[in-house]
Nucleic acid binder design. Structure first.
Length: 642
DNA sequence: TTAGGGTTAG
């Protein structure tokens, strides 16, 4: 927009009067900037689809009679990257490189390189980096860093880094500290600490001073390396110290943590010594870690020394320290001393926490003093320390361990009400224990409560129930079918509880069914066997069950072809897939039955194959079936299947 | 983000 007053003759006269050379108001710098802003605003407002972004950019600026700005190009490219329009980026870059005259700001390329990296278009990122000078831009460490970030994202791309570094040197790019940081970080991340050290040396050879952050990272990575010896880390730190590195509290505590984790308590203790030599007073965290290390190793004498030392140094133990120490006492069966520590802690103003109580509860349970454990649990609640699943688990394991299964059941029910738990191995132990004692009904009752509370029993509980059900004389076969059918449907198949049946469970199930059905078949009670299979088909939502195939397999030799066919059809109706054994038995034995006429045979086999082809296509071994169909006379009843 | 880093057990 141009104001009307600017066009008035009087203005021209004013300019003519006061300036040596008249300047058109349209050609002033501010006017140009103003117009460019207007054009940019118009581009932003128009919000064209991605394919029209570039034409709109050109049109908007042409309308205002100005050249497009780098910002406008950046806006277009950002819009395209936000919507991942790879194809439309190319013409924009082409226009930017070949038509425009301005020096393109480097950040546009850094942004694009990062974008390509996020979409795993590494080659595009590299190509763009090399093409930067063509856009009248002098690349620096900024765009190089963007590319390095992309390449350091994967081990595969990391291999390309040396070449990129060489070429960027030719391009006149000087590596900055930030570039070295990216490289060291990536190398440490993949455990190539040796290379990271080389990079750091290279950095210093390039005239950069020692970087404290990089030193800290390398020492931490050295600690985390597998099979790393303490001398490596401490040796590295020593060398770096000569070069001016002053390891801080965090550097040392990282070293201590890793050493403790690796079971190197004495080495960790030596780090404390070194810290003190260097005038750094290790804090309570460092001491707690070392204390923990010795206790975990069972070196209680050293642990006591460490505890005394920290007190002498004037450090104040906190709840972490006390917990570690109390755990040490409990490991030495000094439960009384542990309990006394709780009183001492309170006197010293350090409140015991959930972990303190859990440690002591476990020790008390292990010593079989369940009543005392109950009292302590009550006490912790009174002291405002809430219990957690672990607390209950300790108690439950304690009760179970003591053989007090009745009490364990009561406790378990209490758990259902008080803590949110989706599964707990201790529950399975209790159910398993009940089954072992022949208390299958009790186990079932508990299991039903678990399911009602949305707690999923694990396979151990299911297996225990399934296995022991047969030995329970009070449970009739039909009851068994109903109960387990329901259970499996509810839990395993529905997947509501996230618990899926495993092959073992199915095996038990089918074995049970098979035993039951075989018994019935032996007795000649075929009708009853079929009733059970049909009941299973109704109650259990399963995809396949080998025992069904066993029934079909068992029906054929008895000449009960029609019955088998009928059952098979029901299975297919219920979407239960017969296994290969049933299919083969069906096809093969039908041919061998002398009482079956060829016509009957063909009449039966035909529909079977049709049935499977349509319903169970992928599981049907069509070739095998067709061989049988085509060569019924060559079938040898005493031989193996075709 | 004026802490970080450290404690039971599975």
């Amino acid at each position: 927009m141009v104001r009307a007053s600017a066009l008035k003759p009087s203005s021209k006269f004013f300019l003519r009067k006061h300036r040596k050379w008249p300047v058109s108001p349209y050609n002033t710098r501010w006017q140009q900037i103003f117009n460019q802003n207007q054009a940019f605003q118009s581009l932003k407002k128009s919000l064209p689809p991605p394919c029209h972004l570039l034409p709109t950019l050109i049109y908007s600026f042409k309308t205002y009679n100005v050249d497009p700005t780098p910002e406008a190009y950046h806006f277009v490219l950002k819009t395209l990257t936000k919507t991942s329009q790879f194809d439309h980026i190319v013409p924009v870059l082409c226009q930017l490189g070949k038509v425009e005259k301005f020096d393109t700001p480097e950040h546009i390329f850094s942004h694009l390189i990062g974008f390509y990296g996020r979409w795993s278009r590494t080659q595009d990122a590299i190509d763009l980096f090399y093409r930067i000078p063509k856009f009248r831009c002098v690349p620096s460490a900024h765009s190089l860093n963007a590319l390095l970030y992309v390449l350091c994202g994967s081990c595969e791309c990391l291999k390309l880094v040396p070449e990129i570094l060489l070429r960027s040197h030719v391009m006149g790019i000087r590596l900055e500290e930030s570039s070295f940081w990216i490289l060291v970080n990536a190398l440490c991340g993949i455990g190539k600490v040796g290379y990271a050290i080389e990079i750091m040396n290279c950095m210093m050879n390039n005239g950069y001073g020692l970087n404290v952050k990089i030193c800290g990272l390398i020492s931490l990575s050295l600690c985390e390396q597998k099979d790393s010896e303490c001398v490596d880390v401490m040796g590295f730190m020593g060398e770096m110290q000569i070069l001016g590195f002053c390891p801080g509290m965090m550097d040392y505590s990282n070293v201590i943590r890793v050493m403790v984790k690796q079971g190197r308590g004495l080495d960790a203790l030596n780090v404390l010594v070194k810290m003190k030599e260097e005038g750094i007073k290790p804090d309570i965290v460092c001491y707690t870690m070392v204390l923990h290390g010795f206790i975990a190793e069972g070196d209680f004498k050293k642990a006591d020394q460490v505890f005394d030392e920290l007190l002498v140094l004037g450090l104040v133990p906190d709840v972490y320290t006390y917990n570690v120490y109390i755990n040490g006492l409990c490991k030495q069966n000094k439960v009384e001393s542990g309990l006394m520590m709780i009183t001492s802690m309170e006197e010293l103003g350090c409140k015991p926490n959930l972990i303190t109580y859990n440690i002591l509860l476990k020790a008390i349970c292990n010593s079989g003093e369940l009543r005392r454990a109950r009292n302590l649990m009550r006490e912790m609640t009174l002291n405002g320390v809430g219990v957690n699943l672990q607390t209950y688990r300790i108690m439950l394991d304690g009760l179970f361990g003591k053989g007090d299964i009745e009490e364990a059941c009561v406790f378990m029910e209490e758990m259902f009400d008080k803590v949110i738990v989706h599964f707990c191995s201790s529950f399975d132990e209790v159910i398993y224990g009940l089954c072992q004692r022949g208390l299958v009904c009790k186990a079932m009752e508990l299991l039903k409560k678990m399911v009602a509370k949305n707690v999923a029993p694990r396979s151990k509980a299911w297996e225990a129930l399934l296995l022991s059900s047969g030995s329970e004389p009070s449970l009739e076969e039909t009851t068994w079918t109903e109960q387990y059918g329901g259970m499996i449907k509810h839990d395993f198949v529905s997947g509501e509880l996230g618990c899926k049946p495993n092959s073992f469970t199915y095996n038990i199930l089918s074995k049970r069914v098979r035993v039951m059905l075989d018994g019935l078949l032996c007795k000649g009670d075929v009708d009853e066997a079929c009733v059970i299979v049909e009941a299973m088909l109704d109650k259990v939502l399963i995809r396949f069950c080998s025992s069904f195939s066993e029934v079909i397999y068992g029906l054929w030799p008895r000449g009960l072809v029609c019955k088998a066919m009928e059952l098979l059809k029901k299975m297919v109706d219920k979407n239960v897939a017969p296994r290969e054994k049933a299919r083969e038995a069906l096809l093969l034995s039908s041919g061998s039955k002398p009482d079956l006429k060829e016509t009957t045979w063909t009449g039966l086999v035909g529909p079977i194959i049709a049935l499977y082809s349509t319903n169970r296509g992928p599981t049907l071994d069509t070739n095998k079936c067709l061989t049988v169909v085509n060569c019924p006379r060559s079938f040898n009843p005493s031989g193996s299947t075709v």
